[in-house]
Amino acid sequence: MSYVTKSPWVIHYDGSSCNGCDIEVLACLTPMYDVERFGIINTGNPKHADIFLVTGSVNEQNIPVIKQIYEQMPRPKVVVAIGICATSGGIFKECYNIMGGVDTVIPVDVYVPGCAARPEAIIDGVVKGLGVLAEKRAKLPAEIAEEKRQASEDAFGAGAAAETSAPETSGPETSGPETSGKEED
C-alpha cells in the first residue's frame, strides 16, 4: 500500500512558554529561515497537521487542550517538544503551576533544547521529526490491522476471542474507548 507523499504541515501550541520559543517557531516560517519554501506550513487546524510543535510546559488547565489537539491529529503524527520548558520544565520547573515537560501528557518523539530554542535548532528538530514520521507511516497499516482485530474481538465477546486467539493474548487488552466506539459506528 503506497501513500502519496505530502508536505509536512505543522501545528503550534503554546503550553506555558514565555513566548520566546513561540516567536522563534514563527521566525522559522518567515523570510530569514523560510521553511515554507519546502512546503512546511503552519496550520491552525489539527486535522490538517502532521507535526505538533509544543512550546512550554504543561499545567492543569492546558492538559485537556494539548490532549485534544493531539487526538484530533490524524495518524501518523509526530510531536516535537520545543525549548527546555517543553522538555522538562526548565527554569520554571519549581513553580507551583508547572507539572513538567510535555511528555507527561502525550508521547514526545523529538526534543529540541534551548532557552529560547534557536530557529536552526527548531528546524533540525522538525527535520528529525520527518524521519520519525516516515517510520510511523511505514508501520501504520500493520497497526491499523492489529487494532481492527482487537476491536472485533472486543465486539464479538470473549468467547470468540478465546476460541481463535487464546494462546497469543495473555489477557483482555484494554483498548481505548475511542477504537471500540468507531467499530460500533
Binding site: G56, N59, Q61, I91, E94, Y96, N97, I98
Partner: peptide, 21 residues
Amino acid sequence: YIHRGLEKLVEKREYTEMVYV
C-alpha cells in the same frame, strides 16, 4: 492557560539569580 507562578520563585532563587527568571 499559561500561568506559571514565577513570582513565587523569589523564595527559591537568590535576588541576583532572579533576573533570569
